[in-house]
Amino acid sequence: MTDAHSTAKHPAAIMAEVLDEIDAARAFVARDDSFDSAQALRVALRRLRSGLTLFRPMLPTEHNKALLEEARWLAAEVTRLRDLYLLWQDTLTPARVALPDNTALQSLEVRVLNRIEKERQQLRTLLESDRVQALIAQGNEMRDTEFWKPAAHSPEKLEDLCIETLDLRLSQALKHGETLKRLDSQARDSFRKSLRKLRATAEFTQSMFPSKKTKAFLKQLKKLLDSMVAARDASAVRDRLEDLMQDMEEGSAERHIAQELIKAKEAGVGLDHKRLQKLWRATVGLPLH
């Protein structure tokens, strides 16, 4: 799989880079009130979870399990704020421009902005909490090569693990992608998640064992995932609006406009199944390693 004359990185170096990304993203959230800051931390935590999953056999079992659970917990907190930013910027702001005098829409925007401010302050407090500091401390243990099991020091065993995991992730994606035309929103989301896991594994593998084949596969896989972003965003907007609607009166104008925004967002996805199938065939037609 590996191209000639390449040297494998130790997984401790890979995870150290991920932990540096998390530190930078935490600082970004602390100083910046924007979608980008929450998104940066969300992506960094996703990479941490992906790395923990890939390298599970080479880390102390209890450490890996505990850190993975904490990373999932914090990622959920961050994603909630990220999706509120998304709702405001990509859905409410264009709607307000189109309907500047709609009082129900104005009221909904105020509600969303208030929730964003609340979630933002809560997240900043959370990032300074003992629980998050413990998560970071646990993660930093992985920077030391001696913390890892002996197998992590063997390039041959690392490469075998990467190939085995890549093949498993590809098989899972193939299973989800068998009937693209009939994918409902839930099944489509499962397909996207399987592709995202495949991409993360391929990226870590490429970091340790650079390969032209893996690089080409990743480039094509990115095109496929980019084509599914709108569907994921529509799902996120629906979830956040449905959460906000719990505090709205039945039959109110504000509740009605929220429901209409959900419909408009999902109708606007416009996922081209033929294009999706073409991208998927082009992706799986390439050698992964």
Score class of each variant (00 low, 15 high):
S211E: 08
A104C: 07
A16E: 09
S171W: 01
L87A: 13
E69R: 14
R281F: 00
K215H: 08
L279T: 09
K278T: 10
S6G: 00
D247K: 13
L221I: 12
R47A: 05
N64W: 12
H289A: 08
T7I: 07
Q172S: 12
L218I: 09
H289G: 08
T214K: 03
W148Q: 04
L59V: 09
T2F: 03
A44L: 13
Q122A: 15
A75Q: 04
S185V: 12
E164H: 12
Q246V: 12
A16Y: 05
A104G: 07
R80A: 14
L135V: 01
A267P: 00
E17P: 02
L41A: 10
A98W: 14
V97A: 07
A258P: 01
T201L: 00
K157E: 02
V97K: 12
D272T: 04
Q122P: 10
G268I: 08
H256T: 02
Q277C: 07
V284T: 03
D239M: 08
D23N: 07
I14Q: 03
P94D: 13
Q89F: 10
E141V: 02
E249N: 11
E250A: 09
T79R: 14
F204W: 02
A187M: 06
R232E: 13
I257N: 04
I14F: 04
D239S: 11
R31C: 09
K9H: 00
G51C: 10
L54C: 06
K65H: 13
Q89H: 13
T79E: 15
D184R: 11
R182S: 15
L108S: 00
A44Y: 10
L54I: 06
A134M: 12
Q206I: 02
A267Q: 11
I116C: 12
L123Q: 14
A234D: 06
L225F: 06
L288R: 09
R238L: 06
S211F: 06
K118S: 15
A98P: 03
T145Q: 04
A234C: 10
D130S: 09
A173Y: 05
T2W: 06
R72M: 12
P60D: 05
D247E: 14
A267C: 02
D144L: 00
K197E: 13
P11D: 01
K181Y: 15
L225P: 03
T201W: 01
L261D: 13
E250P: 04
D272L: 00
L105E: 07
G270H: 09
V229R: 15
R275V: 15
A98T: 15
R131M: 13
L67D: 04
L126K: 11
Q259C: 03
H153W: 01
L68D: 03
V229C: 08
L123S: 15
M245I: 05
A71D: 11
I116K: 14
D184N: 15
V237Y: 08
H10N: 03
F28T: 04
M228H: 08
L48N: 10
R26F: 01
T53I: 00
T205G: 08
F204Y: 07
P150T: 02
A13F: 07
D160Y: 04
T53R: 04
A267R: 10
L271F: 05
